[in-house]
Design a protein around this nucleic acid. Structure first.
Lengths: 354, 354
DNA sequence: TTGAAAGCGCTAACAC
DNA sequence: GTGTTAGCGCTTTCAA
């Protein structure tokens, strides 16, 4: 592997000149520039970015901590982030924490040793305080998706998302509404459900205790939906705090011979790709993944000193921690509530009242 | 950020000694070792892995090229690989190529500049010759999932997988069998279908032209299954070259009021997590993702000179390119073919013959 | 066992 | 514009 020295020798110039040519730090005469380029081509020279980093103090690398890269939602975020970073000439260290706070800490220590220029973290939502991660690296750190109050965060307005879902169901005429929640100590889940209840309350509605299910945000949890549907008075609509749960519920409903939205409406959250392709396509609160990714990277870069301050013009929104507005995507899993008679017949039980 | 020099000064020893202590290169007297450790703790010293890499010629990093990290199958592989690599103290550069050969090349060039110790690649299956990637880096490169004959590759025995699927359907008594394939110029797809046809042929069966559908391996393609089911003589079983397509088909079938496996059996390929959770759970040819990941990393490390030769004992299978045996996972999407009369009634068309 | 010193490939300050 | 050179933080001879 040839070095800058070799290039200099072959081109008949000094290493300094080659370096200037490479970095555009100074003008280089046309003639020398050509000779240098020829030497580079001839030798197949490639800069050693590690050496450059040692000298310049900036490695052009960023660490990305995700709980589980095989979860399509995180996968989509990681993809967006990685692409945005690549565009700015950064390479991404993938750190799959498995939602384990200990692994999370180990990764951050390693990243610190690697002198990454920054870190993007979707923290492990297992009770450990996300703030403890901040001091583990002394470079900019931005929390993504799962925000941390008072720290640079890029997240959706989960509360608003919950409100949008509720409003939609209310407008369709639903009154008996159930909910299937991820663990409520997870900040995003809590915010979504709070927003949902807020909006309900504004219309003198609420989710009755017997229509509230809590669990992990998995397909398996979603399939517990039958516990709701076997009640004497099943809900006419169900809100779930993410799409995976909604899809799990939908599968179970189908297997029970219940139709969505004819027998029960379903609203999800996230808008993962799968939601668009199931039948009927899911009405859901869409988080704009590309927007989250874009903003996360912009925010991080704005904190990296070696980056030109993003823009001198009007203070860019990307630099603040304004939560990203989710939007309701109405598809075909929601409809007005079924007539009482019809649905009880479908469910194979007698209505309590006609 | 403090350096090894600071540690040496505080501990009152030379940098060389600190380095030896850090790397265990030489015994260090108890007293000095303690003083060094104290200095390290006091200063919060962390080695600069970049500087170490420059000097030692090994960066302890590996590049991972994947077509699309938000595809759960690749996500699972990436996850397994990243974990295995982390265990061996390597950090992973995530490179999402978007199945674009040009991006693929750009990434490899960048990785070369970063002096990674090796690269793992699931190449972009878009017609570009995967072999062209080999010379772009001068470190070990292992092809994963999508193998390349004659190059270090870790893949499943796709041909065998196809055979297993066929055998299963034959044993159940199916004779009229359809198939939904990804683009047949994709090596893995071709191998799966060849194996499938081989086994069929061994039993004097074949997939008639009108029961063969080709497309991209997406949910959307899967939903074209109705083209098969609307034929005068629809298949009693369908083989798909991956689970995503099978799931797409399954969704469409449900929406048409057809039951799996009552009306038609479905066999997938891959065994992604989702297959286990749909209803009925999918019969599929399982690729052992953990095994692929483990083997890929073992193979790569075996090619990295700075790694101790994996094991001196009996030549480890992990070091060869023996394809990994897939296994058939029989779940509930397959059953004996329906009686002719019953199925034509279900499909709402008249049987051609009784 | 320890210290001194060279040098990995590069950038940047400085002198010309 | 261009060349020379110090030095980024570390490992690794080589002597002692």
């Amino acid at each position: 592997m040839s070095t800058i020295k070799d290039v200099a020798r072959v081109a008949g110039v000094s290493v300094g000149t080659v370096s200037h040519y490479l970095n555009g730090t100074t003008r280089v005469t046309r003639a020398k520039a050509e000779r240098i380029q020829e030497a580079i081509d001839a030798l197949g020279y490639q800069v050693d970015l590690g050496a450059r980093g040692l000298r310049s103090g900036t490695t052009k690398t960023v660490g990305l901590l995700v709980p589980n890269i095989s979860n399509p939602f995180f996968g989509e975020i990681a993809r967006g982030i990685e692409h945005a970073l690549t565009e700015r000439d950064y390479l991404t260290f993938l750190c799959d924490t498995g939602d384990d706070p200990r692994r999370e800490e180990a990764y951050l220590a390693n990243l610190a040793s690697r002198r990454v220029d920054g870190a993007l973290v979707i923290y492990a939502d297992q009770g450990a305080d996300p703030r403890r991660l901040r001091p583990l690296v002394d470079v900019p750190l931005v929390y993504v998706d799962r925000g941390v109050p008072g720290m640079p965060s890029v997240t959706s307005d989960n509360r608003l998302g919950g409100r949008l879902a509720a409003r939609h169901l209310i407008e369709l005429g639903h009154q008996r509404i159930g909910a299937m929640l991820g663990r409520p100590d997870v900040a995003n889940v809590a915010a979504r459900y709070e927003g949902f209840c807020d909006e309900l309350a504004a219309h003198d509605l609420e989710v009755p205790d017997e229509l509230l299910l809590t669990g992990r945000q998995t397909l398996a949890f979603g399939s517990e939906v039958d516990r709701l549907m076997r009640l004497d008075m099943p809900p006419t609509a169900i809100f779930t705090t993410n799409d995976i749960v909604a899809i799990g519920a939908w599968q179970k409903l189908m297997s029970l011979g219940l139709r969505v939205p004819d027998d029960v409406s379903l609203v999800g959250f996230d808008d993962i790709e799968l939601s668009r392709t199931i039948l009927p396509p899911l009405t859901t609160v869409a988080q704009s993944v590309p927007e989250i990714a874009r903003r996360a990277v912009a925010r991080l870069l704005s904190l990296i000193p070696s980056e030109a301050p993003a823009r001198s013009g009007p203070h860019s929104a990307a630099l603040d921690d304004v939560p990203i507005e989710p939007r309701l995507v109405v598809r075909e899993s929601t409809a007005p509530p079924p007539l009482t008679e019809a649905r009880f017949r479908n469910l194979g039980v007698m209505p309590l009242a006609n």
